[in-house]
Structure formats: C-alpha cells, structure tokens
Design a protein around this nucleic acid. Structure first.
Length: 415
DNA sequence: TCTGGGGTCCTAGGACCC
DNA sequence: TCTGGGGTCCTAGGACCC
C-alpha cells in the first residue's frame, strides 16, 4: 500500500440525546427521546426498544412505555457540536465537517507533532470525554469510506483502526448496508441476487452490478467494495441548494392553506440567500399528498432572484399549477421549496440594464419596494431576532405540529 | 394516534442547437 | 429529399445521507 491510514472519521454517539443526559443527570441510563409529536433523536436505551428518529411519538411510546420525551436544547447542540469539531481542528486544519456531529480529518501531516493517527484518535476521544462530557467514536483508515465504516463499527464509544494490510479482510466480512449509498432499496435489490455482504458484492462483475443499480451507482459501489476511494478531505464545501419544508398534517389542497406555508418557507430561504449574496435561478416546489406520494415542479428563471415576495409568488404559482394537474387530490400533507442554481458570493454590481429579481428593470417602483421591504426586515431580524418581524401572511403558518425553527437551523449547510 | 427537516447525487426524457 | 447524431439545458422523479 502506498499511503498510511491517516483519515479519521469522528462521530458523536446519539448526539442530541447524549447532550440531554449530560445536562440532566436524572436522564442518564434511561430511554429518552428528543421531540414530541415526532422523535428527532433517541438515546441508546430508547434505541434498544426499537425507537428511531422520524418515528411518530405515539408509536415510540407504544414500543417503549417508559420513554421520556424532552423538548430539546438546540443551542447547546450547536455549541457542543462546534466544540467537538474544534478539538479535531487542534490536530489538523484538514477537517471536513459533514453535519453537526460528524467530521472527517486528515492527520497525515500531523504525526510528527502529535504521534500516529491512532494516538491522535485516542487523544481526541479522551479530550471530548473530559472537556465536553460526550462520547465520540472514531474510525481510522486509509480512505474516507473505510474510516466512516470503521467509526460505525466502533460505536458505541469506541475506536477502530483499520491497518492498510488487512483492509479488504475487514471490509468484506461486513454487511452491504454499512456502505455509503446502500439504503433499504439497494439493500433489497442486492439481497434479491444473493448479495448481503460487501465481500459478495465485490465478487460480482461490474456489468451485473451496473445492470442492477445503474451505471454510476454500480461503479461507485464496486469501487468502494474494493476500497478504491480517492476522495480527499474538502475543508470548504458550499451548499448547491437551499430548501425548506413544512409538514401540514392533512389539510385541504387550497390556496388559503398553502400560501401562508409557502410564504413562511420563502422568508427563511430568501433570507439565507440574501445574507450570503447568493441569489437563485431555479425554484423547485414539492407537494406531498395525503397518501405520502409527492410530486415536484420546477422553473428556471432568466435572472437570479432573492426577494422574499418574488420567491413566494413563484412558489405559489408552481404549486397551484401542480394542483391543477392533480385535480383528484383533495388534501395535502407537506409543501417544500428548494432554491438552486445559486449565484457566486461575489457582490453584484448595479448594471444599468440588468434584470432585477422580479423580472423588472432596476429602479421600477415594484422592484424598489420589494428591496426596501426585504432590507428592512433583514435589518430588524439582525438586531432583534427572527421572531421580531413577520410578513403578514406568514404569521401562524407553522402551526402546532411544526418542528422548532431552532432545530431546522442545526441541519443548515454553509452557503 | 399516521410518519421531520436540510441536503446531495443519479437517471431518463424532451427541447433545442449545430 | 431524407436521415443522423452529439451536446447542452431543463424538468421530474427517486434513492440516499445526517
């Protein structure tokens, strides 16, 4: 092997639930779930009963009658997640954060200062335990994919180092669903052809796997099965899309239902676009019907937009068109907006003939009014917080079932 | 009692241009 | 007069990840 095993994958164990047990000692050792109407996260004690995230609250209670629901300390999750990643950064700047509780790190350049990768992993685990009170599992391997699998195998609260000389032996004994990109559907398709382990997958011909899973997915999966993974750590990743969605329960497919919901989503999205100066050119909406089937509609504009009112109007138009195409659907259970085709972060100059957000020329009465309104709202929110002001029609759009906005923010990626 | 929310990537087909 | 094909952009749907 040419290179050493110097990629770390670090993953905080049952993160949200562990933070709650850290904050309240009475919760330690007990089955708990963050959330209420729906389980946002579960402790290991709750998982032992079959409780999973995204599970409806009533179902979780049925599986585990002693389950304790806690509302969640979202700002603490952010603080402690950041702090744990910062521990990794003390050993290398080559850190790629995947989510609030998970990151890759390349420590190949750090061994003279801090010792072997495995020693660095032990240091990180001990410091996260001592300084933050949290368990973090780490996998160490030559590639990202293998490090990620190793950290999964290491859980709970463990360390697994995969030696470059024995990596295929380690990999091939494991079930296929541990691989990145193998979910329930792919797992079932593979099982139909007798493949349940990564080793069995590796023995299949490329043609057979590509026929089964498609060209790109098949190749990718076979590469991973042979640990051919050339991906490097990416320290600065920017999002390619920004979206938001809102579950509605079961509501009539009528404008008085979806307009306020879309308005609220558009506010959140357009605010993020303006904050990073990354207007979007493509707007996609999704509507989920009562039977959980969902359909999408998209439009790509000639000029990029970031005004809340414009995004709202486009989304409302797309959704009403979509519903006209499905007259048989009388109720909807979710609406979503996604903004993509994002512009660069460079400041846009006021070119005289450039089309504005709303398709009008700059300086028109409509365009100027929208800009003034957005700028005023952005400024108030920057000073007094998001809740300080709302566009009239989006008030109370969330409803009692909604997940708190603070929870949503945790999953947002850097724009 | 009925199933969250924010993202990425891939496939297939059509429109359009050269 | 008929047949062809590649490339790009866009839309819709789906699988997957955390």
């Amino acid at each position: 092997m040419q290179s050493v095993a110097a990629i770390l994958h670090a993953d905080l164990d049952a993160f949200y639930a562990s933070v709650e047990q850290l904050l309240d000692p009475a919760l330690r050792g007990r089955p708990i779930a963050v959330g209420g109407g729906v389980v946002l996260a579960a402790s290991y004690e709750a998982k032992a009963f079959g409780v999973r995230s995204a599970m409806p609250g009533w179902q979780a209670r049925k599986l585990c009658p002693e389950l304790i629901f806690v509302p969640g300390h979202f700002s603490e999750y952010q603080r402690l997640g950041d702090a744990a990643i910062d521990v990794l950064r003390d050993y290398t700047p080559e850190v790629e954060r995947i989510s609030i509780d998970e990151a890759f790190a390349d420590v190949a350049g750090s061994t003279r200062l801090f010792g072997e990768p495995a020693a660095i992993a032990r240091l990180v685990r001990a410091r996260v335990r001592d300084e933050l009170g949290l368990a973090i599992s780490i996998g160490v391997a030559r590639t990202k994919h293998l490090a990620k699998i190793a950290s999964q195998v290491a859980k709970p609260d463990g360390l697994v180092v995969v030696d470059p000389d024995t990596e295929l032996g380690f990999l091939h004994g494991l079930p296929v669903e541990l691989m990145w990109g193998v979910g329930p559907v792919t797992k079932a398709r593979l099982a139909d052809t007798g493949v349940t382990t990564i080793g069995q997958l590796a023995q299949r011909s490329p043609e057979a796997v590509e026929r089964l899973l498609g060209r790109a997915s098949g190749r990718k999966l076979l590469d991973l099965a042979w640990n051919r993974d050339a991906r490097e750590i990416q320290t600065h990743r920017r999002a390619h899309s920004v979206g938001a969605q809102s579950a509605l329960g079961r509501r009539p497919a009528a404008e008085h239902v979806y307009r306020p919901a879309l308005q609220h989503l558009a506010e959140r999205i357009a605010g993020r676009l303006r904050a990073k100066d990354r207007p979007c050119r493509t707007v996609t909406v999704r509507v989920r019907f009562a039977d959980l089937r969902s359909v999408t509609r998209a439009v790509t504009l000639r000029a990029p937009i970031s005004a809340t009112a414009t995004l709202t109007e486009i989304a409302v138009d797309l959704v009403s068109g979509l519903l006209r195409d499905h007259p048989e659907e009388k109720s909807i259970s979710l609406v979503a907006i996604s903004a993509s085709d994002l512009g660069g972060a460079t400041l846009q100059l006021e070119l005289p003939f450039r089309l504005r957000d709303d398709g009008s020329r700059p300086g028109t009465r409509k365009g100027m009014a929208r800009e003034r309104a957005d700028r005023a709202v952005d400024a108030i929110r920057a000073r007094f917080g998001w809740e300080a002001v709302a566009y009239a029609s989006s008030q109370n759009a969330g409803g009692a079932r909604a997940v708190p906005d603070a929870f949503r923010s945790l999953a947002e990626k850097e724009l």
